[in-house]
Design a protein around this nucleic acid. Structure first.
Lengths: 343, 343
DNA sequence: TATTCATCTCTAATCGATTAGAATTAGCAT
DNA sequence: ATGCTAATTCTAATCGATTAGAGATGAATA
């Protein structure tokens, strides 16, 4: 393949019989008006030459790269970086960004990675803005956000609000409300002895869901029985074993609220292995709504996260020219209870 | 945040008391030698000023962006783009690229998306190379590859070899061998009546795994009973129902080879719901080795894909200066049979 | 000491766009 | 027609690096 000579602005200008400045104006729809006739000629030339503005030249002069970076600070980067959770969100975000002419750059961050890499990325001026996902609450994230703030780069935080003091907005789904909905549902079905399987408590989500459980129980006038709160590290097998412990109790629960669908899956399996039925003997509600939840039999009742919405909102916030009219906002997106067969 | 003035080459040069050319030489370790003393002075200046070369300027002049794009041509882009499969691979790839100073750009392609987007990306000169994943065999992918070839960009194909005529290497895992291993394993345990649950036959993997099944049966001198080959669209629920049909046969199988772990999951559930045990009554082997496979009880025997290896290999191929000494190569990575409790 | 050669450094052109500021043209009222 | 303003268009500087070609330096050789 002989690498055909690139088509440049100059070529287009020559073909359209105008100066390069005008071509630039036409392409960028401004900042100065162009006559209808010239505009058309330029567009035709662009079309005919299959011209695409060079990204580097553009970025150099205009200081805009039309690229957005996303980094996740997670404890389990390699296995979970692209969980269903992040995956769906990323897909939506990629698509939303693309439709605005932006590209998404993936950064490989673990929760303990040094800010050096980040500093390099920012120093290079490679991206216009950055999205950060933290699985824990501030202030563990502060040093990272500090780096971004110093670079003067727009940033949106995923899931964990509280970056407002850096001037950054956030997009979060409503973990608390999700837990409330799940519990309300189970309580509404008459369950009184409800267990909770929580996830890795280093995660803010695990904390939030557990505290929703406790709040709901208390609000319903029920005492919190700590033998009904079992834990595991977001791991289906651990959930299976935890459930076995629940089933072995003198007063086993009649319902289980699991902090994730993976955990719920383990619970359902354990219950069925014990010869009991779901939801006949024990009802189960999960959290996340991963694809399996709908497909398994019995299908899993769960709390659906607004993943695609989140992706789109983040994309919108990051590409908004009109950055925050009235200060950064913490966007809280609603979750949805999906009642299926396990409850 | 007042956006601090950028530190440029000039600043570094001034501080080190040399010309910008020398700084460039030092930073890029070539193409001309620099004296030890000057080299050190420059490094010190870089350090002190926290200098990072501007990506756009660099890209403009040197025509290298140090960015790699990846696109997936799949039938189900939104749900599966970031399946476990792609996720782990991407994580490995991102990391490998990063360690070489490259960044990964995500492209949001569905299998029927037009080449226009791609042409734009390439026209912009935004990336140095591109990785493409196709879930079907050529020639459906040819028009896309044609675009890349015309742009003269290095490209690596994931999973589906046969792009050699465009001069592109490929990285694939051994689907056929995986099927063979799974079947050999089941046959070795004395199973003779083995069923196969295949996935969406539009996928080359589904085809390859099915044909491995047929080949193994034939090689073992067994006749292929078409009532034992049931299909579903990579969907756990469909697998569940397909398995119910298998169990209802006059001569139900004693083992099932499922074309994916998701399908295997559905099969296991169906078997257990029927009151039978796995592997006591029926053995099951899956394909992929998703995280759940190890965690479920009983844990699932399956074929593990070399996902991280693939990611790294692709990264290597795409960043290799020495592009193909002796023509493009189709790299075929081995898979591994993981025997667990279901078989 | 003069000459040659290798090594290192500097000057300045260049990549391809954007965008001030100047120049031109068009539109309109006088 | 003429002057004035508004609408367009052109010229050329600029972004921040890389890199050919020229120049300077020092060591080795004659």
């Amino acid at each position: 393949m002989e690498p055909k000579r690139r088509v440049t602005l100059k070529d287009v200008a020559a073909r359209a019989g105008v100066s390069t400045a005008v071509v630039s104006y036409v392409i960028n729809k401004g900042p100065r008006p162009t006559s209808k006739e010239v505009t058309e000629r330029v567009h035709r030339a662009v079309e005919e030459l299959d011209y695409h503005p060079n990204h580097a030249a553009r970025g150099l002069r205009a200081r805009r790269t039309h690229a957005i970076a996303i980094a996740t600070y997670d404890f389990r980067p390699s296995t979970s970086f692209f969980s269903h959770y992040l995956g769906v969100m990323l897909a939506a975000m990629t698509e939303a960004l693309h439709s605005k002419g932006y590209y998404l750059l993936l950064l490989p961050f673990a929760i303990d990675s040094s800010p050096a890499r980040l500093r390099q990325l920012l120093g290079e001026g490679r991206v216009d803005a950055i999205a950060m996902r933290f699985v824990t609450d501030p202030p563990s994230s502060d040093s990272v956000l500090q780096v971004i703030a110093e670079a003067g780069l727009p940033c949106v935080c995923l899931e964990r609000p509280g970056a407002a003091r850096f001037g950054f907005p956030s997009v979060t789904y409503d973990d608390r409300e999700g837990g409330r909905l799940a519990m309300e549902h189970l309580l509404g079905r008459g369950h009184r002895r409800i267990a909770h399987i929580h996830g890795d408590m280093r995660y803010a989500s695990a904390q939030a869901r557990l505290s929703s459980y406790e709040r709901a129980m208390t609000a319903a006038g029920l005492e919190i029985d700590h033998s009904l709160i079992v834990g595991s590290p977001w791991d289906m097998k651990a959930a299976h074993e935890a459930t076995q412990r629940l089933l072995a109790l003198d007063h086993p629960p009649s319902a289980i609220f699991a902090a994730s669908d993976d955990l719920a899956l383990g619970a359902v399996q354990a219950i069925e292995h014990r010869g009991l039925s779901v939801p006949g003997d024990i009802a189960v509600v999960g959290f996340d709504d991963i694809p399996i939840s709908e497909q398994m039999i019995p299908s899993l009742s769960t709390v659906r996260l607004p993943l695609e919405d989140m992706g789109r909102r983040v994309a919108d916030l990051l590409t908004a020219e009109t950055a925050s009219h009235d200060g950064p906002r913490d966007v809280l997106l609603p979750v949805e209870l999906i009642v299926r067969e396990t409850s």
